[in-house]
Amino acid sequence: MKTNIGISEENREKVTDILAKLLADEFVLYTKTLRAHWNLEGHDFHTKHVFFEEHYNAIKEFADSVAERIRKIGHYAPATLGDFLNLTHLSEKYEGNNTSHDFTAALLEDHDAIIQYIRQRIGTIETDFKDVGTADFLTGLLQQHEEMAWMLRATIAK
């Protein structure tokens, strides 16, 4: 059945394009957080192993909520690794050591990149594309990434 939610098809398509890139970023960040959880070494292994597990579980929920938002506005979510790698703004490469500090710094960079991506698009989605629901959804997601970034930043503060 046709989606008739008061937002034009053209605007829903533009919003979907933004959300698809965000979904890809979330999935890449999820994978990188799993890498940190799986490959961590060091004196703080147990504490950070649990910390990264909490984070990847939260990010998995973020990705699911973005995909569901795409479906709510009448489109299909990208769902292959190839799609995600083609759409993401993040790099899947990691060049640090297997220490909590290096993993945390790399993940913080990615959270900051996602925060900036969302922040730069909320106004356009609400004003230009007339989708206050997605703008509101993204505001909440932005706040969750800001909290995670704060926790990551606080753990590597000098």
Rank of each mutant, 00 (worst) to 15 (best):
Ala105Ser: 11
Glu146Ile: 07
Ile156Asn: 03
His111Val: 00
Val66Cys: 10
Gly74His: 08
Gln116Phe: 00
Asn97Ile: 04
Phe52Thr: 12
Ala135Ser: 15
Gly74Asn: 08
Asn98Leu: 09
Ala105Cys: 04
Phe51Lys: 08
Arg119Ser: 12
Lys72Trp: 02
Leu107Asp: 04
Met148Ile: 10
Leu152Asn: 05
Gly133Leu: 10
Thr33Val: 11
Ala63Trp: 05
Ile59Ser: 05
Lys130Ile: 08
Leu138Pro: 06
Ile122Trp: 01
Asp64Glu: 14
Phe45Ile: 11
Ala67Cys: 07
Ala67Gly: 09
Asn39Asp: 14
Ile70Gln: 04
Phe27Glu: 13
Ile18Ser: 08
Asn98Lys: 13
Glu10Phe: 07
Gly123Glu: 15
Ile18His: 01
Arg35Ser: 11
Lys93Ala: 12
Asn57Ser: 11
Thr124Glu: 15
Tyr76Gly: 07
Glu126Gln: 10
Phe103Cys: 07
Thr3His: 05
Gln116Gly: 02
Gln144Gly: 07
His89Asn: 15
Gly140Ala: 09
Asp136Tyr: 01
Ile114Pro: 01
Thr134Trp: 04
Glu13Tyr: 00
Gly42Phe: 05
Ile7Phe: 04
Met1Trp: 00
Gln120Asn: 14
Thr99Gln: 05
Arg12Leu: 03
Arg153Ile: 08
Thr3Trp: 01
Leu29Glu: 03
Asp25Phe: 05
Ile73His: 06
Ser8Tyr: 02
Leu108Asn: 03
Lys93Phe: 07
Asn4Arg: 09
His75Met: 11
Ala113Tyr: 00
Thr127Ser: 14
Gly140Cys: 09
Glu61Ser: 13
Ile59Glu: 04
Gln144Ile: 11
Arg69Ile: 04
Met151Ser: 04
Gln116Arg: 03
Leu40Ala: 09
Ile125Tyr: 01
Lys14Pro: 00
Asp112Trp: 00
Lys158Leu: 14
Glu68Tyr: 01
Tyr56Trp: 10
Gln143Glu: 15
His55Met: 15
Asp102Trp: 04
Glu13Gln: 12
Val28Leu: 14
Tyr76Arg: 09
Pro78His: 05
Ile7Leu: 06
Phe27Ser: 10
Val50Ala: 11
Lys21Phe: 01
Thr104Ala: 10
Asp136Lys: 05
Ala63Leu: 08
Tyr117Asn: 00
Gln144Tyr: 01
Glu147Val: 09
Thr33Glu: 07
His89Tyr: 05
Glu95Phe: 14
Arg12Ile: 03
Lys72Thr: 12
Ile122Leu: 13
